[in-house]
Amino acid sequence: MSTDTCVTQPASTPGFISVEALTKRYRPDMPPVFENVSFTIGQGEFVCIIGHSGCGKSTILNVLAGLEEATSGHVIMANREISGPSLDRGVVFQGHALMPWLTVQANIAFAVRSRHPKWTREQIGAHIQRFVDMVGLNGSEKKKPSELSGGMRQRVGIARAFAVEPKMLLLDEPFGALDALTRGVIQDELLKIVSATRQTVFMITHDVDEAILLSNKIMLMSNGPRARIAEIVVNTLPADRQRETMHHDPQYYRIRNHLVDFLVRRSRETDRDLESSATPRLVRPGLDDGDGDGEGEGAAVVRNAIPIIKAVA
């Protein structure tokens, strides 16, 4: 079943990325922004992180990207500790971060040439075209970012990150500045691309629906300072879910209510409750009060999930 693939994967390849006891303190006389954050991401998993502003989501992403250093703790990817940025971890920045003096093509070419410095012009051109087509930007290759709409710019950013073919993709609120309609279209595209490439993704978002649509696991962060990963919600919706029909699934509202509930109420309380436990608990709100079939799936998932927790701890 689809839910199996979501969760059993990390068990089969435990900790493609594993984050261990990460703490970030900006000033020694202030409490840390987040403390003792540990989690794992399996290969091919799409993980979203949700939390209020200031809880350190972007900092965690930057540490994963290697752009920032944690005060303590480790990030291990494919059995190697991360130190500094790498072509293996592509980042899509919040503000698209395209070079405004380069065309769409040249922006992507800059990335491709960094990955494959020995490639010929033709090879690079063909490679770029593939990713331009993928995000649906044919015809705009020769335009400068200033001539594109916000949604198109963000697509170029995504194409640039994908064109490097990183082992892991980090998305920092990539659709935050877009209108709802454009956002929906690009979400669909991202979903399509990710399911086709089986890309491992770590994404920050403020949009609960976006998280439910795109991700296999949703990490909920409590409020800072001393923010923690309070819970990891397993998305038990079928993998072939679609934006148009997703809300007809009874699980959808259970998951959604659980997430919203956390954001409005429990994100403040949990930081005290969690003081003792080092690892976040895994929950499946989609399967609560479900029918027999759902229950059975849930049980299978729980059994499979246990090794993950052990691996983290």
Binding site: A65, L67, V91, F93, F110, A111, S114
Partner: peptide, 8 residues
């Protein structure tokens, strides 16, 4: 940061 992540 883009340049850094691309190991330029």
């Amino acid at each position: 940061n883009v340049a850094r992540t691309l190991e330029v």
